[in-house]
Design a binder for these strands. Structure first.
Lengths: 106, 106
DNA sequence: ACGGTATTTCCAGAATTACAGAAATAAAGA
DNA sequence: TCTTTATTTCTGTAATTCTGGAAATACCGT
């Protein structure tokens, strides 16, 4: 992962509302969560939610699948793992801190 | 770590210039790096660097120690570890992804 | 105290972001 | 096709961020 991509993803997560959105999606697991449910759960304007979701989708942290009229959002675990891996690599680039083990995807 | 704190820290890292600054400091290891050397290395205006550094210091990711007229900056490894730990916890809150091992500080 | 180096603060302009109401679009069912 | 539900796009406003030049401050050596 390139530095600029990592920065863009960190920035996307670096907003309380978006971090809450992302957290909700992570906790929703593989089945994901519909935009409408997210809106009800987080109690923010639909347009605001849509913008934030777009930010997360653009950087790849969230994917969406349509199920009829509802759009289901999913956290992209693999990309999150990559991002954490990047941070760890940066952090440990010169043995400056203890090694961190990120598991392979099962 | 609270969600708002995590978001603030992610936001601080979520800018290419600041991520470069942070990476440089991480790679500088325990001895850190002076503001002036950072400026020469990254080739940005002193005032701009100072602003970005302040953002990193405010959220705790960077600490500074004075050595005469020069200010030496250090990456706060412990806090970074905590931040990564927070992300991992969020990510794995409901067993939604494989466990990630973050080492204890030696 | 003075001079020099290191760094920050002040200031301002350009660009971006956050937010939400209103209108537009997408999809499904009657 | 018409209606309803779900979601996005459009639009505008207020606030924030990024940037760097100029001036101010901090510290050291003499």
């Amino acid at each position: 992962m390139k530095l600029d991509d990592a920065a863009a993803r960190l920035e996307a997560l670096g907003n309380p509302t978006r971090l809450k959105i992302y957290r909700s999606l992570v906790r929703a697991g593989a089945e994901g969560m519909a935009v409408g449910r997210l809106q009800a759960k987080l109690d923010i304007a639909a347009s605001t939610l849509s913008h934030h979701l777009k930010s997360l989708v653009v950087v790849g942290l969230v994917t969406q699948t349509r199920d009829g009229t509802t759009l289901v959002c999913h956290a992209n675990y693999d990309l999150m793992r990559d991002l954490l891996g990047y941070m760890v690599e940066e952090c440990c680039a010169e043995g400056s801190c203890a090694p961190v083990v990120l598991p392979k995807v099962a």
